[in-house]
């Protein structure tokens, strides 16, 4: 089986600071990988590079066989990324954010039912018409996760998705990730949550001082 995420010779430097040293990484469909490591070790930089949001200093990244920078449209169609601090539009409500994302990805069919189901599952249904700047950090993270789940994808990258969630929401997310894995999605997430690591991960990686090693 060919990997659905493939990164070769990946490295990134912020000026003279080497945040990520030369790394190869791959993940197959239906697999879950967890990255752990201390604060500032390079987890977010690694995920940002894989998601195409940050251009690496060296290396190539392929998502579903497409180069994330030269074939960005099909690559981004297959990829969903949730940052640790998602920022939303001031003028759009939570519902409108989801609708905009679904439309932009061409996933308008069945949007209403899908959005209702997800919002209810994550406890945001009552807040659907609120502007997200009123959300708590936990609610913002949940909406960020829904940004990914509202449209189809093959690869899901999450940067510390449970860092501000309560135990119930973390368990709910774990169940969703489990279901997504069974549907064939490849999932890579950084987390300090031991439950997610033990109950979900096929592979565990550790990053320290920018070096990625398999645990």
């Amino acid at each position: 089986m060919s990997p659905i995420i493939e990164a070769t010779n990946l490295s990134h430097a912020y000026g003279s600071f080497q945040a990520l040293t030369l790394t190869d990484f791959s993940l197959e469909a239906g697999q879950v990988a967890v990255i752990e490591g201390p604060n500032g070790s390079g987890k977010s930089t690694f995920l940002l590079c894989l998601s195409g949001l940050l251009r690496p200093t060296t290396g190539q990244i392929k998502i579903d066989g497409f180069d994330i920078f030269t074939q960005d449209q099909p690559a981004h169609r297959a990829l969903a990324f949730v940052p640790d601090v998602p920022r939303f539009y001031i003028e759009l409500t939570a519902w409108e954010h989801l609708r905009f994302l679904a439309l932009a990805h061409g996933a308008q069919a069945g949007f209403e039912a899908r959005a209702e189901k997800l919002l209810k599952a994550f406890g945001l249904w009552e807040a659907r018409d609120l502007f997200p700047h009123l959300f708590s950090r936990g609610m913002s993270l949940k909406l960020g996760v829904l940004f990914a789940l509202i449209r189809p994808f093959k690869v899901l990258l999450l940067d510390e998705p449970t860092s501000a969630m309560d135990a119930e929401s973390s368990e709910l997310l774990r169940q969703h990730l489990q279901a997504l894995r069974q549907e064939g999605a490849a999932i890579l997430l950084s987390t300090h949550d031991p439950d997610i690591k033990q109950g979900l991960a096929d592979h565990v990686y550790r990053i320290e001082k920018g070096c990625l090693t398999s645990v």
Binding site: I90, E91, L92, R99, F100, A104, D129, F131
Partner: peptide, 26 residues
């Protein structure tokens, strides 16, 4: 803006049009 707003009907077209309609709504 206050706290809440009823959903806009402006967002209805797929692709790049969604971005334009989002901009118009904003």
């Amino acid at each position: 803006l206050g706290g809440a707003h009823a959903p806009s009907r402006l967002l209805r077209s797929p692709g790049a049009w969604a971005l334009l309609q989002k901009d118009l709504l904003q």
